[in-house]
């Protein structure tokens, strides 16, 4: 594996050397740090913790126009060739891993052209978590704060410089564009920092046997108890890097309209509302149960992985302290 070093103060220069690409990064917007298209290099804010708006957006946007039409009968499809080569910079290894979990969903039996167009043109540049956050539990679910899965290039924070690990060919290409700023790293390995970071993770859960356990609990009254304090907002799903549910809606005015694909949340009642008025998941209990089952059972059945990377955002952002780790361990104890 090739490694380079990059002085931290040269980061803006590094990013401007990549101006051929469209760059997405955590951006300071008012009091919040959000993941967004980077227009001004000054705005990069490498606050990895507080990102309620996440990198998923770069490849799977919250609203994506599929085509537009007007009363004359003109239909204009979204031009996927216009998708530019993109760099998604400054994501956590768990976020990068989430794309590998989304891939089988969008590129399975019926490949999704919109996802594929962006995914195939996007390079993922991650920053290793030296200091994992309070609700991180990636190590319990197959990830690691220094995980390389899904990434093209891994930045490791080593004081006043970054060590860059080139993981893929795309990563190599990118370092090639900024080679003047990089110097080859000495053979020093990152193993030690990685181990230290892993040791800092305080929350763990053993998920062995969970899908089987869930299979026997579907009708269990425990779900009613679990869901009783849920207030039914969509914060957990909208901030989740592995949630991919969407809705398609026609937005029309008298003379023109468009069909848009929009993120949806299984926590909203209208998510499963039928045209007849019947709602198969009518209450919070059913909706909450579905969220857990989808992530930890159905996804396992269909794609052989959990639909969770252990980023802990749903736990940190929940207004009523619905703690996924806590609930999963209680599921395991339930008879």
């Amino acid at each position: 594996m090739t490694t380079y070093t990059l002085p931290k103060d040269k980061l803006p220069e590094f990013l401007s050397a990549l101006s051929d690409y469209e760059i997405w990064a955590p951006v300071k917007k008012g009091p919040a740090t959000l993941f967004d298209r980077l227009d001004d290099l000054k705005d990069v804010d490498l606050d990895l913790e507080n990102q309620p708006v996440i990198s998923k957006k770069a490849i799977f946007p919250q609203n994506e126009p599929l085509f537009s039409y007007d009363r004359k009968g003109t239909v204009t499809e979204t031009d996927l060739n216009a998708v530019k080569n993109t760099i998604v910079f400054g994501i956590r290894p768990c976020d990068a891993r989430s794309f590998t979990l989304l891939d089988p969903v969008f590129e399975g039996d019926v490949p999704d052209p919109y996802y594929r167009a962006r995914r195939s043109k996007t390079a993922l540049l991650g920053i290793a978590c030296n200091d994992p956050f309070v609700n991180c539990f990636c190590t319990s679910i197959g990830g690691s704060p220094f995980g390389r899965e899904g990434l093209d290039l891994l930045f490791i924070d080593c004081g006043d410089l970054f060590t860059l690990e080139v993981i893929t060919e795309t990563g190599k290409e990118i370092t090639g564009k900024a080679s003047s700023l990089l110097s080859p790293a000495t053979a020093e390995s990152s193993e030690q920092i990685a181990q230290a970071a892993t040791d800092k993770i305080k929350r763990h859960i053993d998920l062995t046997g969970l899908p089987e356990k869930l299979a026997s609990l579907f009708e269990h009254p425990v779900w009613k108890e679990f869901a009783s304090k849920c207030i039914g907002c969509g914060i957990c799903t909208y901030s989740c890097p592995t949630c991919y549910c969407f809705d398609m809606q026609d937005e029309t005015t008298l003379k023109q309209g468009r069909r848009v694909r929009i993120w949806d949340s299984c926590m909203f009642p209208e998510y499963t509302l039928h045209a007849s008025g019947h709602n198969p998941r009518a209450t919070r209990t059913e909706r909450f149960r579905n969220r857990i089952y989808h992530k930890f059972k159905f996804n396992m059945d269909n794609f052989h992985s959990y639909s969770c990377v252990g980023c802990g955002r749903c736990i940190s952002l929940c207004p009523v302290n619905i703690d996924l780790i806590d609930y999963l361990s209680r599921v395991k104890e339930t008879e």
Partner: peptide
């Protein structure tokens, strides 16, 4: 506009 452009419409404000 600066404020609302950040909104992700999770409706946590409404539900809480």
């Amino acid at each position: 506009q600066n404020q609302f452009s950040r909104c992700i419409r999770c409706y946590a404000c409404r539900n809480s």
